[in-house]
Structures are given as structure tokens and as C-alpha cells.
Design a protein around this nucleic acid. Structure first.
Lengths: 241, 241
DNA sequence: CCGAATTTGTTCGTATGTATC
DNA sequence: AGATACATACGAACAAATTCG
């Protein structure tokens, strides 16, 4: 006999989700109901639910209820040519994105270094949130040299993709330089933006795009939902995706 | 009471860690002590501690106490030539690894596909746990064609690195093919192996190594501690690291 | 080697706050 | 405004792991 009742309950609920007894989107019984159903205290139920929410199986919403969450995995290829729309579009995924702010700020530390600018020279930081098939998958900041791309934030609103904006500046092609990836627990604000449980981790990607001659174009930091995205690195592919 | 006492306490403890009042490795006061100190219930303290542990600042050990954890970040380059020892050795990190089991099993689904074997043909699955400067950073399974490398598990015990084992088979060089990365919460067993808190996420890397002519050599799945490792992808570099 | 003391882990009960409908 | 449902909090007890005499 396991004395850890919350693990048993967790396993029972997970089984119901896997078996389809609880369908994606379905609402679970309320916590007091589950407590009587499983003959346990409400704390124990909450512990089991918290664990399942952490793993992305459930989403808990105060005042509404607890819901079974579907978890489609998007495969995002990283290669020499890393293009959000083209790569995901090839998988039949509809990508949209919306800006949520742009600032003209002085470049500090890493940003200045990566863009080959002197510390304190102005850069445009433009923030966007991206959805795949209507579900938020990432948000992040892209930094551009303000001297070279003074109105990039405005152009990004009109034109959809990053590639289209670059073409409007006469840049026909660009390549992904260095990419750094790590994972960490999500801050509560990030979890809210990505509509995932606070206990689900995020993937942090820092990357530099360059022109064909090596000139730095943009440095970006993007937070991805670990529940919804995985990365593929195809080193040999001339064109990832 | 909107004040969410556990968040306040969390912030106070975190500040003490950041300011060095609580040094790395130091033991925190016991939970009942902290409860009286912060004038809160033990549950509230535990909630604050759990949050900090999730983020890797604390490590909680039943029967012993709660300790401040140092969190060094290792940068692991992924490129055409991805070599654990060479890459981390260049950063001045001492890499060791120990085997913890090897099986001869029939290849299923993904493994068979990646290694270009027919479903059910025998493969050697060898498991290893790797340390960097004495701290566990990853563990995983490497699959090899059993026909071609029948005694690879034994050879890996004698010879240290993967590269050395391949050389013993007459393979002087090999390249990294596809790599997949995603993040997820750690299972409790994984957290125990990596000596990290159960709430800290892990990075899962699936990769295929090929010979220079493209023949698949090995398919592997490695679980990395997200608290200790980040990945760098240098696409242009002929030799990553 | 054993048992007691210490410390964290789990569970129950209960009360109150906050968000949603 | 009221009902419903999750969030936070306190108290108490026992279980499990570790340490130490």
C-alpha cells in the first residue's frame, strides 16, 4: 500500500485523461466533489491536481474550474534559415502574432555586444506574442539597430513576417548565427501570457540573425512554451524545415 | 488578505540568498523555526521554500534540512561535432561518467527508424550518468546496432569517451545529424538522479550520430539538468566548442 | 546495532479571501 | 447580488528519512 494518497489519486486522474474518460477540454468535478469521491482531504486532491497541472495535463482556473488540456507538440526547426511562418506553415500550422510594445532604448551589455554596437547606442526593442493555431506559443523581444531600422516597429505592424520587413529594407536574405537554448520554471506573468500553468517550464532562446556577409541584423530573446514546442536542429539542411 | 504571505516570505529568503546572508551550502533554519521567525504557519513557509527550490535556489532533503544551492551554468555546444568531453573540457570543466546498465533489446519504432534497422532487430541500449566537476548534469541511453557493435557496452566501460570507443572499432570521425530538444518537468526518479529538486525542469535531447558517409552510428536520448546546462547552437562553426 | 531526537513529508480539518458566472 | 469554485492560511497529528548517542 502506498501511503502517499495524492500520488494514487494523481495516477487515477491521469489514467482517466489518457483513456479518454476525461476528454480534452472537459471540466473536472470540483475539489470538494473529488475529495468525497476519492475519500481524501481537499489538500490531497489539490496536490494531485497541482502535479498534473505542472505536467501540462490540466489547467486550473480560479473561479471557473479545472480543465483537461490538450497538448499538441509543435516542431520548430532551427537551422541556417530559421523562419517562423515558413517552418510552421509547412506543418500545416497557422501562425499569427501581435505586437505588444516597442521601445527605443540604449543598448546594454549583451545586446550591444551581439549587434556590434557601442554601449548605449540606441536600439529598437520590439515585443511580440505569437500564436500557433490560435494558441499562444511564444513571446519575446527583438533588438534592432535604431540608426539602421528607425521605423522597424511600425513596419512590423503593417507587414506580417520578419522576412517581409527585411525585404522592405532591401534585405533579401539572412542567416541565423548563434542560438542559445535553456529551460527554467516560468514566472507567473509568463505563464499567464502563454496561458499555461505557472508550474510548467519555458524554453528561453537567445539568437542572432546575420546578413549573408555576416553583418548582425537582429538579436532576440524569445520565451517558448515548453508544453507546446520542441526544437529540431538540422545541421546538414541548407534550409531547415 | 490580498497580501499572499508566502510570496513575501519567498522574496525575503531569496533576498538573503542573493545578498549572501545565506551562503551557498548553508542550512536554513528548520521549518517550525522559520514559521515563528516570519510569524506564519508551517504550510506557508513550505510553500515559499517549494517555490525557491523549484527555481533551483534551495535543495530540500527530508530528515536533513533545507540548503542553499549554488547554480553554475554549463554551456554545451551542439554542432556538427558534438563531443561531451572535448566541449566541456575546453571550458575547464572536469567531465566524468559512469555506466548504470546496458541491455540487448529489440529495436522499436523510433530507434529502429533512426538507425535504419528493421523493427525488432537487436540493439544495445547503454545507459550512463555524467558529472561535470562532480555534479550530475545528465543521464541517458545510447542505442547501437547490436550486429555491428556487439560488445560496445563492455568497451565503453574500459575506454572513457564515446569517441575512443568508436576509434576502437576503426571509426575515426563522426558527425551529429538531427537533434531534437524539448523541456518538461522532471519525474521524481530523474530529479533524484540529477540531485535536483523534483520541481526543476529537465531538457530532453534526442540525437542521431552518423558516420561521414551518412551511415547511422548511434541514436541517443539524454536527460539534462535544466538548472545546470544550456545549449549553444553554432551553425557556422565547423567545430563546435 | 538500536533507539531517540531531529527534520522534512503527508494528510486531515477548518476558515476566509478572491475570481468567475 | 448571490452562488460557485479555486487560493491562501492556520493548526494539529503522524509518517518517513536522517543523524547521533
Amino acid at each position: 500500500m502506498t501511503r502517499e494518497r495524492w500520488r494514487e489519486i494523481r495516477a487515477l486522474i491521469e489514467r482517466d485523461i489518457m483513456d479518454g474518460v476525461l476528454e480534452p477540454g472537459a471540466r473536472l468535478p470540483t475539489e470538494p466533489e473529488l475529495a468525497t469521491q476519492y475519500e481524501a482531504g481537499r489538500h490531497t486532491i489539490r496536490r494531485a491536481i497541482a502535479e498534473l497541472a505542472k505536467e501540462g495535463h490540466l489547467s486550473v482556473e480560479q473561479g471557473r474550474g479545472t480543465f483537461v488540456q490538450p497538448r499538441p507538440m509543435i516542431d520548430y526547426p532551427i537551422g541556417r534559415r530559421t523562419r517562423l511562418r515558413r517552418n510552421l506553415g509547412a506543418q500545416g500550422i497557422d501562425v499569427t502574432s501581435e505586437p505588444f510594445g516597442a521601445d527605443r532604448i540604449p543598448a546594454e551589455g549583451r545586446v550591444a555586444r551581439m549587434l556590434n554596437l557601442s554601449e548605449g547606442s540606441p536600439v529598437i526593442a520590439s515585443r511580440r506574442l505569437s500564436h500557433a493555431d490560435g494558441v499562444p506559443v511564444s513571446f519575446g523581444t527583438l533588438y534592432h539597430d535604431a540608426e539602421r531600422f528607425p521605423d522597424i516597429a511600425e513596419r512590423r505592424i503593417g507587414l506580417g513576417s520578419v522576412s517581409a520587413v527585411y525585404r522592405s529594407y532591401g534585405i533579401e536574405d539572412y542567416l541565423r548565427g548563434q542560438t542559445q537554448i535553456h529551460a527554467r520554471p516560468a514566472r507567473s506573468e509568463e505563464a499567464r501570457r502563454l496561458r499555461q500553468h505557472p508550474d510548467m517550464p519555458v524554453l528561453v532562446v537567445r539568437a542572432l540573425d546575420r546578413e549573408l556577409d555576416g553583418t548582425p541584423l537582429a538579436y532576440g530573446q524569445v520565451i517558448w512554451s515548453a508544453a507546446r514546442v520542441r526544437f529540431s536542429i538540422n545541421i546538414d539542411d541548407e534550409d531547415a524545415g
